[in-house]
Nucleic acid binder design. Sequence first.
DNA 1: GGAGTTTTGACAATGGTTATCAGTAGCAAT
DNA 2: ATTGCTACTGATAACCATTGTCAAAACTCC
Lengths: 127, 127
Amino acid sequence: MKRRTWQRDAVAEALAENTGFVSAQALHGQLRDAGSPIGLATVYRTLAKLAEGGEIDSLQLDGEGLYRACATEKHHHHLICRNCGTTAEVEAEAVEAWAHAVAAQHGFTAPAHVVDVFGLCPDCSRA
Amino acid sequence: MKRRTWQRDAVAEALAENTGFVSAQALHGQLRDAGSPIGLATVYRTLAKLAEGGEIDSLQLDGEGLYRACATEKHHHHLICRNCGTTAEVEAEAVEAWAHAVAAQHGFTAPAHVVDVFGLCPDCSRA
DNA sequence: GGAGTTTTGACAATGGTTATCAGTAGCAAT
DNA sequence: ATTGCTACTGATAACCATTGTCAAAACTCC
């Protein structure tokens, strides 16, 4: 059974304060700096659970997991600044359709896809 | 300057024997089982160099790096069986165009993208 | 053959993530 | 409220893929 704890709320709240994707470690540091005595393991566990439940989005970059509380519940993809992490949510029905078509064409079932666009945001491009 | 060693050849050859993506560790085990005394660190280094030079493709799955010697030199994407690793190469000019357009639309520069489709291949679907 | 520089390999170190396990604290029934 | 059950937490150890280290080996050019 799922229980409600202040730790879970704290993680969700801290995540909401970030506009881009954040690592578990960064989030833990943020919480600690804000005076919360939350444990690192708890942050990892909570993020994993939230992601599993579809409440937050996650992706892997350079071998570390990043998380983000997204605005929409709908399926979408991300345009991410590889320098500062700023993220824009983008929809791409054409890509969804393409992914399904490709899978079907080769007889693959249970299709899933990883589609992310990386780049330098306007601010970071200037620097 | 780049030198030619039997180790580099051995890695490339072992990679060619696999149809799907393989991890550095798996490849090392494969080489060792075949009687090669190659070192693990060397396999990692060689794979990194080959990938850097564009001679092989790489991707990250579950936090571990996977490599594959692809048939074409052209930019392409992959349709991967998440059970057995079997891989099909697929082209998607429409997706390339979409990625560029999305980045440009938001003022992002130096666009790159990660696009992979996962699923169960016909064989694994049956099981 | 020899100099000069890469590359190698065994092993240590790194770093993000997960397992352990005793103590804590939701939640429900009493 | 109190109790009982059990999920959750946190400090720390363990994991494990990967990278760094450095002396020894070996490729290439002269």
